[in-house]
């Protein structure tokens, strides 16, 4: 068989199965982020926002929209992808994927694409919800979509790695809770990095989420904390690191094969 042949049917089978799995729990997975977002709008947008007025020339309610979408996108990407691969590992059904004529790249692509698809769908639902609260006009829609897709893919890869690494449900939950949530909150979802006092501002520049939120916000309002180039570079870098880790995982068979 030619080395460049691709098992499209196999990729599609995994993608479809993953999407079906998510569809089974659709109401839960849609309701939670939507309700949370509405709460954020009420608390931050209305209650606190009424005191703040404008940030970087944008109304506070509108200012937090990109951050909220990013918050959902990141948590959803990580949790979808990590559960997507952890579940078959846990139920031992992974044997079938490992014994199929499917390369690692193909399998990862299928799982990651499914996780990213769902995360993006949810992000769009949040966006639609947001328009009920604040008037939005998006300056760079193409870039907005590009950021959505890139971020969803990068963090789905990250989630995939966590799912492979995790040995139990605690470990599966700990990274989103202990790493993702603080990073996103500190990453400027609800404020401009410029508002932070100094040592924190410098430290926060190591936080990848700062670049994501900032770049994403730029695609909405054209204003940014850090340069758009830096945002793209950081997202790309993060993705490359995840790919390298995955490559190492597959070379060594870590936690997948003995």
């Amino acid at each position: 068989m030619r080395w460049f042949s691709i098992n499209y049917t196999g990729i599609y089978a995994i993608y479809r199965k993953e999407m079906a799995r998510m569809a089974r729990t659709m109401w839960q997975s849609v309701a939670t982020p939507v309700i949370t977002t509405v709460l954020y709008f009420v608390v931050f947008g209305r209650a606190i926002g009424s005191q703040i007025q404008h940030v970087d020339g944008v109304g506070y309610g509108a200012f937090i929209v990109p951050g909220l979408i990013m918050l959902t996108l990141l948590t959803q990407s990580v949790s979808n992808a990590s559960i997507g691969i952890y579940f078959p590992k846990f139920t031992k059904t992974i044997y079938e994927v490992l014994s199929a004529p499917l390369s690692y790249t193909e399998a990862v692509f299928a799982y990651v694409a499914a996780a990213a698809t769902k995360a993006i769908l949810l992000a769009l639902i949040i966006l639609a919800t947001a328009t009920l609260f604040v008037p939005l006009n998006i300056h760079h829609p193409v870039w907005m979509v590009a950021f959505l897709v890139l971020t969803a893919l990068a963090f789905s890869l990250f989630g995939f790695i966590i799912g492979i690494w995790a040995d139990n449900f605690e470990q599966l939950a700990i990274v989103p809770a202990l790493v993702m949530t603080p990073l996103t909150f500190l990453g400027g979802a609800f404020y401009s990095i410029g508002m932070l006092p100094q040592p924190w501002r410098a430290i926060n520049m190591l936080n990848p989420v700062v670049y994501l939120v900032s770049g994403f916000r730029w695609s909405f309002y054209g204003s940014t904390d850090v340069g758009i180039g830096a945002s793209l570079a950081f997202t790309g870098l993060f993705m490359v690191i995840c790919l390298l880790v995955l490559w190492w995982i597959f070379c060594t068979g870590y936690r997948l094969k003995t």
Binding site: T9, Y12, A13, K17, R21, T93, A100, P101
Partner: peptide, 21 residues
């Protein structure tokens, strides 16, 4: 080792697809 929430039909459909058929 089976995905217990899936139907029998979808399970075999998935397996066949996975093997590129």
């Amino acid at each position: 080792a089976l995905d217990i929430f899936e139907t029998v039909w979808n399970t075999v459909l998935f397996s066949r697809g996975l093997f590129g058929k």
